[in-house]
Computed example of a mutant assay.
Amino acid sequence: MNEFWVTPGDAVQNAIEKAAAAGGGKVVLAPGTHRSGTIYLRDNVELHLPAGSRLLGGTEPEEYDDLPAGLYGEYAPCKCSKALVAASGAVNIAITGSGVIEGGGPAFYDRDRLEGGFFYAKTEKPRPRLLQLVHCRNVRLEGVTFLDSPGWTTWLIECEDVTITGLRIYGDPRMINNDGLHFFGGKRIAVSNCFISTGDDALVVRAGRAWQRDAECLAENVVVTNCVLESSCQGVRLGCTCDDKIRRCSFSNLIIRSRNVGIYLDNPVRYLTVACKGPLLDLDDVSFENISVESLTKPIAVEVEEGLALRRIGRVRFHNISFRGREPLCFTGSSQTVLEEIRLSEVSGSVSGPETIRSCYVNSLIMERCDISRKP
């Protein structure tokens, strides 16, 4: 593979374009700090950050590009269409190494004021993401540390054949909206051996529509294993009211520590106002296995707010789960959306509140070898 070295002060994008023109190659950032605006990955190019190298984004929104519509559609999280590293429709791309990609997130918040008594107050500044990939195939993210993203750390939209391993994602726990790994659709995605510690959701799998179009958005064959997830919000969040289809997803061998809900399938009415067009959520065949959860609220919750008529939430399985929380396990559908099947086997743990389990509008709640207790 051709190698194209970049020394601090040189333009990273120039090296990427040279590698692409040569049919592909490896762009290597030499040890040191590489201050950069938005970088666009190209086909068959690997961006490699060896130990000691740091790709540093700016502390002002103007230092990042406004991405073209093809990179975010009509829906831009936190009303920001900016990112440090981006690609659209790229094939055979990779970010590897032991270096750091840093976003200067704290500069985008008012750290002298707190919202809700805990999170830094938001400012009017648009908050860019560190990585945004759209409709890309054969993607590999390996070993790199992502640090202090101003917004969602990563946003992968309808990408296919994605391998993510050994990432370290750190965000100030008081920064809201700095989610770790965030997927909108996609097929054949494998995440393993990652450590994620953020203020907002550590890992999110959705079939969210970034574009107002009639084509199906599908999250399918997503596998997450051997990860540690810490969050001031949710550890794992799966699906949302206005999503399309989610199928055959597996989460296993996880340690989750959360100030809010550990594992959350949340469907509130208010999300109908966010980029929602067409049929609502259809979720089927999801498993959680060999997981330890500690939560300051609900360890596990599958919830549909009254007034919502989703297409389906069915076949959600929890096996060999240990937990500790303050609030009950919740499996609550609505009169319009009855949960089709929830299965718990070898689930054990304790809650400190008066309820251990809350359940309503569930067609089939199957519990095998469970030990759930109340320990005030």
Rank of each mutant, 00 (worst) to 15 (best):
E3M: 03
F4E: 09
V6Q: 07
V6G: 06
V6L: 12
T7D: 12
P8F: 11
V12M: 01
A15L: 02
V28M: 15
P31I: 01
P31N: 03
G32F: 14
G32R: 15
R35E: 07
R35F: 10
G37H: 07
G37W: 08
I39C: 08
L47F: 05
L49K: 09
P50V: 09
T59S: 11
E62M: 13
E63P: 00
G70R: 14
Y75M: 05
P77Q: 01
K79L: 08
A87T: 11
I93F: 02
I93M: 04
I95D: 02
G97E: 07
G97Q: 09
S98T: 10
G99S: 11
I101Y: 02
G103K: 03
R111F: 10
L114K: 14
G116W: 10
Y120W: 15
A121E: 09
P128C: 11
L133A: 09
R137Y: 09
E142D: 14
V144Q: 06
V144E: 06
T145L: 06
L147E: 08
D148T: 03
P150V: 14
W152D: 13
L156V: 13
L156F: 11
I157W: 00
D161Q: 04
T163A: 03
G171A: 13
N177Q: 04
N178T: 15
G180Q: 10
L181N: 09
H182Y: 14
F184R: 12
G185Q: 08
I189Y: 12
I189V: 15
V191Y: 03
N193Y: 13
S197I: 06
V205C: 12
A207P: 04
A210S: 14
W211V: 15
R213F: 05
R213G: 13
D214I: 06
A215F: 13
E216F: 10
C217D: 08
L218R: 01
E220V: 06
V223F: 15
V224A: 02
L229T: 04
Q234M: 09
Q234P: 00
L238C: 15
C240T: 14
T241M: 10
R247S: 07
C249T: 14
F251A: 04
L254H: 07
I256A: 04
I263D: 03
L265K: 03
N267I: 12
Y271W: 12
C276Q: 09
K277P: 02
P279N: 02
P279W: 02
P279G: 03
P279K: 05
V286D: 09
F288K: 05
E294W: 06
K298V: 02
P299W: 03
A301Q: 14
E305S: 11
A309I: 00
R312H: 08
R312A: 11
R312L: 12
H319R: 09
H319C: 00
S322D: 06
C330P: 01
C330N: 11
T332H: 12
S334N: 05
T337G: 01
V338G: 00
V338H: 06
V338L: 05
E340I: 06
R343I: 07
V347N: 00
V347S: 00
S350G: 08
S352F: 01
S352G: 06
S352D: 05
E355R: 09
S359L: 10
S364W: 13
C370D: 00
P376H: 11
P376A: 13
